Amino acid sequence: MFPSVNDLLYIQVASVDGENTDKEYKSRIADVEDDTLLIEIPIESGSGRMRRLYIGDELSIYFLTDQGIKHYFNTYVLGFADDIVQLVRIRRPEPEMITKVQRRDFLRVVAKLDLAVKLKDGTRFVALTEDVGGGGVSLLADNKYGLSEGEQLYCWLLLTYKNGSIEHVPFEAEIVRTKKQETGRTMLMLKFVSISDMERQKLIRYCFERQFDFKNR
């Protein structure tokens, strides 16, 4: 069952650092397209404050049927559109991704993946990710690179699927948070600032495979 125009959506936003994911927002569907939904800017329940969204933000959403049953799906922000008011364009879920079970882990999974990184000055290094998701990744980097919040990185991520196929996912990302480790390295939390929809789909496919594996162990 798909949500329809004027249906009310209840939304949680997955932040890169894991904070404020329990806050709930409300929005309404303004239009339904083949592969996307256009929704109004979300409003925080209780306070009425608007929630600004960014391309790549991961969303956990539920809507109610006429019988009052909650249906959940995960999606992410594709872009924006201007009507009488600004609207947010999100990926329309596939039928099999709409469930009666809430997925609180969004699209982010723990994963040790090879990541090639290039800095603006041309410095290159290879690292392992700590987790990956539709909106960004986290990795450990040596302190010698002196990386800090706000810097942009050019990256290539290596994905290996269950069927043995391999994909490379290029993207540009911004460091949104750093956390120094006792090992002499720093945890970098990255948010995508430039990634094609096709490449993001590869990453989300990998995340869903990993989620399925975790739930069946």
Results as ranks from 00 to 15, higher is better:
Asp142Trp: 03
Cys155Trp: 04
Ile90Tyr: 02
Leu9Val: 13
Tyr145Glu: 10
Asp105Tyr: 00
Leu64Arg: 07
Leu59Asp: 05
Gly46Gln: 00
Ser196Gly: 13
Arg104Thr: 03
Phe208Trp: 09
Ile84Thr: 09
Glu209Pro: 13
His168Glu: 00
Met187Ala: 09
Lys118Arg: 10
Asp34His: 06
Leu153His: 12
Gly184His: 11
Cys155Phe: 07
Glu130Leu: 15
Ile69Leu: 13
Asp197Ala: 11
Met97Phe: 06
Ala14Ile: 11
Lys144Asn: 09
His71Ser: 14
Gly18Asn: 08
Ala173Ser: 14
Asp213Cys: 00
Ser194Gly: 04
Val110Ser: 12
Met97His: 02
Gln12Val: 08
Arg52Lys: 01
Glu209Leu: 15
Tyr161Cys: 14
Val101Cys: 01
Ile84Trp: 03
Tyr206Thr: 10
Ser47Thr: 15
Asp66Tyr: 04
Ile69Tyr: 04
Val16His: 07
Thr186Trp: 06
Phe125Thr: 05
Asp82Gly: 02
Asn216Asp: 06
Phe125Trp: 14
Ile43Asn: 01
Leu188Gly: 01
Ser194His: 05
Val5Pro: 04
Leu59Tyr: 11
Tyr54Val: 07
Leu53Pro: 05
Gly164Trp: 03
Leu38Cys: 11
Ala81Thr: 10
Glu44Ser: 05
Thr186Ser: 15
Leu128His: 14
Ala173Gln: 03
Leu188Met: 11
Leu139Asn: 07
Met189Val: 14
Val85Phe: 07
Glu209Val: 12
Phe125Gln: 04
Asn143Tyr: 04
Phe208Tyr: 12
Tyr72Asp: 11
Thr186Cys: 08
Pro3Trp: 03
Leu115Asp: 09
Lys26Tyr: 08
Glu24Asn: 02
Ser45Arg: 07
Thr123Lys: 11
Lys26Ile: 14
Leu139Gln: 06
Arg92Thr: 04
Leu188Ser: 08
Gly134Ala: 03
Glu96Met: 01
Leu140Pro: 04
Val13Gly: 01
Gly18Thr: 02
Gly122Asn: 12
Asp17Ile: 15
Tyr25His: 12
Arg89Val: 11
Glu149Cys: 01
Glu44Met: 13
Gln12Asn: 15
Arg177Ile: 04
Asp7Thr: 06
Tyr54Pro: 06
Thr21Asn: 03
Thr178Ile: 15
Arg185Ser: 14
Thr186Gly: 04
Ser27Phe: 04
Arg92Trp: 09
Leu139Gly: 11
Asp82Asn: 05
Lys100Phe: 00
